[in-house]
């Protein structure tokens, strides 16, 4: 499976944020999306998630040469600030989600098994989500997004505000989930990107480009990325 973006463009008035993006993401890889502040990472995610209407271009899934439209359930989008329905308990939210997606979720498990997998403590499962801590909300959001087994998982700065233990758990989780899907991970933290991601993609000048690691050691690779990002001029 491949996730293909063709000629995607988006402008806000005169400012061309995404110009003619052409890129193919391969299944089974985690892509680290790096870019300067305001480079358009969130805009790109919003366009892919169809929260924002793109001005032109298309994106689709290519499964063994057969192209098909990306539907809403193909995409999981984890935002940097976790949002969960505050009036439900963790268990109720999960139950609601499983109820309405009954048909599409394979090998349904008991609710507690899902909680165990995210290491959400038993006493927290029946608390209202408004009383969850930031990290727990984040876990909950991640859980909902991965149960559906989306083909494309978009993560916008997901680990920055987590404590080290949870962040490590999440990293492990993302690694274990990467098979069978495209994971795109936007971050400002270079070390995180290098540690977790299989490919580093830069968003600069409104275009996506891969930074080849070839045979550079990690220090040289870092310098190469910084150099590439520095080229960004103020349009």
């Amino acid at each position: 499976m491949q996730f293909v973006i063709e000629h995607l463009s988006k402008r806000f008035e005169q400012k061309e944020v995404l110009k003619d993006i052409d890129f193919t993401f391969q299944e089974g890889k985690i892509y680290g999306l790096l870019g300067r502040n305001g480079a358009g990472k969130t805009t790109l995610f919003n366009c892919l998630n169809r929260d924002l209407k793109a001005d032109g271009g298309s994106f689709f899934l290519d499964e063994d040469g057969v192209r098909r439209e990306v539907s809403a359930e193909d995409i999981g989008y984890v935002l940097s600030t976790p949002t969960v329905p505050e009036f439900l308990t963790g268990r109720e939210f999960l139950k609601f989600f499983l109820d309405i997606n009954e048909g599409s979720i394979q090998n349904l498990k008991p609710l507690d098994e899902y909680f165990d997998r995210m290491s959400i403590a038993p006493e927290d499962r029946d608390k209202l989500l408004k009383d969850y801590s930031h990290g727990m909300k984040n876990k909950m959001q991640m859980l909902i997004n991965i149960i559906a087994q989306p083909k494309i998982l978009l993560l916008d700065e997901p680990l920055t505000s987590l404590d080290v233990v949870v962040a490590e758990e999440m990293k492990q989780l993302l690694r274990s989930l990467k098979e069978g899907r495209v994971t795109i991970f936007s971050t400002h933290i270079m070390d995180l990107a290098l540690d977790l991601c299989d490919e580093i993609v830069l968003l600069s000048h409104g275009e996506l480009e891969v930074v080849e690691k070839s045979n550079l050691d990690s220090q040289e690779f870092k310098e190469k990325i910084i150099a590439a990002l520095k080229e960004e001029t103020y349009a």
Partner: peptide, 18 residues
Amino acid sequence: MNCDHSLLTYSFYKQPGF
């Protein structure tokens, strides 16, 4: 404020039928 604000960030919630 208490429901759609968060649920609208999940793609499953935005399926036309739902």
